[in-house]
Design a protein around this nucleic acid. Structure first.
Length: 271
DNA sequence: AGTCGCCTGGTA
DNA sequence: TACCAGGCGACT
């Protein structure tokens, strides 16, 4: 799925494209993806105006003029596309939101893992509390990371991807950050020294910033709100580069499974 | 801490 | 035909 940089890109796009638009209708053929139910959501959103778009971890928030929030999780293959209502259908359209000005917000999702959920401000706060710090926030400090890592023996890559520990990092950016920091993804989080943690923090910020700069990684399904690909996949150092030369040592990039997820790293450089 | 399930499609 | 895919919650 879209990870932090991809969701952030969509957030910025949507801010330009749909803020101040009015919601005229919502429909779906994929009822499980609209929560609590299409009926409830429809009743709440019809006639409201979109005030603001937000992001927390990999979740997008659409703030409505009645105080409610539409929260969207794109999971692995979700897209949020802004189209003219007469534009040709997109692949895998699941939820269609008709907007004022002849526009349409299309939630498309091949694998149907994603969802749109209606929340009030209070339940949003409860849901958002469980997430770890945002990498671009002031809470994201060495001290904070040290605290998080010291509490678990799990592999550092698994911890990086745990949204309750740190928000927004997924499989791609975890692999890339660990390569930059020269840390073996299998290494126990607990065993990272101060220097390694400092390197890792810098690396996380660096790869996420690069991801945003290149408008996300379109390795598989990701598209921005106008249906355009990002280009961060052209800058991957290890992800998807199994058997190819490491850019540092000219050894070979390895692929292993870590908790069932494809994990790419350079066994020579990453210790 | 690791595996399965939710879904559909692309590729070897 | 089998396996793989950027996530994550439930289960063991």
């Amino acid at each position: 799925m879209p990870e932090l940089p991809e969701v952030e890109t969509i957030k910025r796009d949507l801010t330009k494209l749909i803020v101040d638009k009015k919601i005229l209708d919502i429909k779906t053929d994929s009822v499980k993806q609209v929560q609590p139910s299409l009926g409830v959501v429809k009743k709440a959103v019809m006639g409201t105006t979109i005030k603001k778009i937000g992001r927390r971890a990999k979740l997008l928030q659409v703030f409505l003029s009645n105080g409610k929030i539409l929260v969207v999780h794109l999971k692995l293959t979700g897209r949020l596309l802004v189209r003219d209502k007469n534009d040709p259908q997109d692949d895998w359209q699941r939820v269609l939101i008709t907007l004022s000005g002849g526009k349409e917000l299309r939630f498309c999702d091949l694998r149907k893992f994603g969802w749109i959920k209606l929340l009030d401000a209070r339940s949003w706060t409860l849901e958002a509390e469980k997430f770890g710090p945002e990498p671009f926030s002031k809470e994201f400090t060495i001290i904070c990371l040290k605290k998080i890592f010291s509490k678990t023996r799990r592999a550092i890559k698994i911890v990086l991807m745990d949204q309750n520990k740190i928000a927004g990092i997924g499989n791609i950016y975890a692999s890339e950050a660990l390569f930059l920091a020269k840390i073996d993804p299998r290494k126990s989080a607990k065993q990272l020294g101060n220097q390694a943690i400092e390197q890792l923090k810098k690396a996380i910020i660096k790869v996420l910033k690069a991801g945003i700069k290149y408008r996300g990684a379109s390795d598989h399904d990701y598209l921005d709100a106008l249906g355009q690909k990002g280009s961060y996949q052209d800058h991957f150092l290890v992800y998807g580069r199994e058997g190819k030369k490491c850019f540092d040592c000219k050894g070979k990039v390895a692929k292993i499974k870590l908790s069932g997820r494809g994990t790419y790293f350079c066994p020579k450089c990453q210790k």
